Simulated assay, not measured.
Amino acid sequence: MNSMKMKDMINEYVRAYNSFDIEGMIALLHEEIEFRNISSGSIDVETKGIEEFREIAEQSKSLFSYRCQTIIAYSFEDDKTQVEIDYEGILAKDLPNGMKAGEKIHLKGKSVFAFRDDKVAVIEDHS
């Protein structure tokens, strides 16, 4: 897959993510999608397959009243693309870690996307 097509798919995925459009996100994913959220070097969430991804996406959707990923930069290597992300969100409910509904989260991180069969096959979010 060429870099322009990868970039377009990532932009569409981020648009769907920002607008809480889970079906729009799912439409771009390979049926064997692997998702990992890596925080401070440790995997804290991992899914395999569309249904596990859908479950975690629904859970995540309910945590935020607002969320926005902004892509700062892209780098391409073979069938992978790394994007630098600026993220902000507003919590919709209290979290077990003590954060309260209405609090704003602001993070910088990166996401790595890998592609197979013209679909997103791997997403790794690093923060």
Rank of each mutant, 00 (worst) to 15 (best):
M99I: 01
I22V: 15
M9H: 14
A16I: 04
D8M: 09
E34Y: 13
E84Q: 13
L63N: 14
I22R: 12
K61M: 10
Q82A: 11
T70E: 05
G49H: 01
A101M: 09
Q82R: 15
E46K: 14
E31L: 09
D94T: 03
K80P: 06
K93D: 05
I43H: 05
K48S: 00
A16M: 11
K104T: 13
Y17T: 08
K7Q: 15
E103P: 06
Q69L: 13
S60V: 04
Y74C: 06
R15K: 15
K104A: 11
K104Q: 11
H30E: 08
I10R: 03
L28C: 10
V83A: 09
N97C: 12
T81P: 09
E34S: 11
I10W: 04
C68E: 13
F64H: 04
I72T: 08
T47F: 00
S40N: 14
Q82E: 14
Y74D: 07
F20P: 09
I33M: 04
Y87S: 13
A92P: 12
L91V: 04
Y13V: 08
M99D: 03
M25Q: 15
E12F: 04
F53N: 01
A101E: 14
Q69C: 12
A101W: 08
G102R: 07
S3I: 05
E32V: 00
S40E: 14
H30C: 05
G49F: 00
R67P: 10
R15P: 05
I33Y: 01
K7T: 15
I26K: 15
E77S: 04
S42G: 02
D44W: 11
I56R: 14
R67N: 07
T47D: 00
F35T: 03
Q82T: 15
N97Q: 01
E31S: 13
L95M: 10
K93V: 15
A57Q: 03
S65E: 01
E31K: 14
Y66H: 07
E12M: 11
V14W: 09
I38H: 07
I50S: 02
Y74M: 05
C68Y: 05
R36W: 07
A27Q: 11
L28F: 13
E32I: 00
E12C: 09
S3D: 14
E23K: 15
I22C: 09
M6E: 00
D86E: 15
R54M: 02
V83T: 10
E32T: 06
S19Y: 05
K80G: 04
M6W: 02
A16F: 04
K48P: 00
G89S: 07
D21I: 06
D79C: 08
I33R: 00
P96C: 06
M9C: 08
Y74G: 08
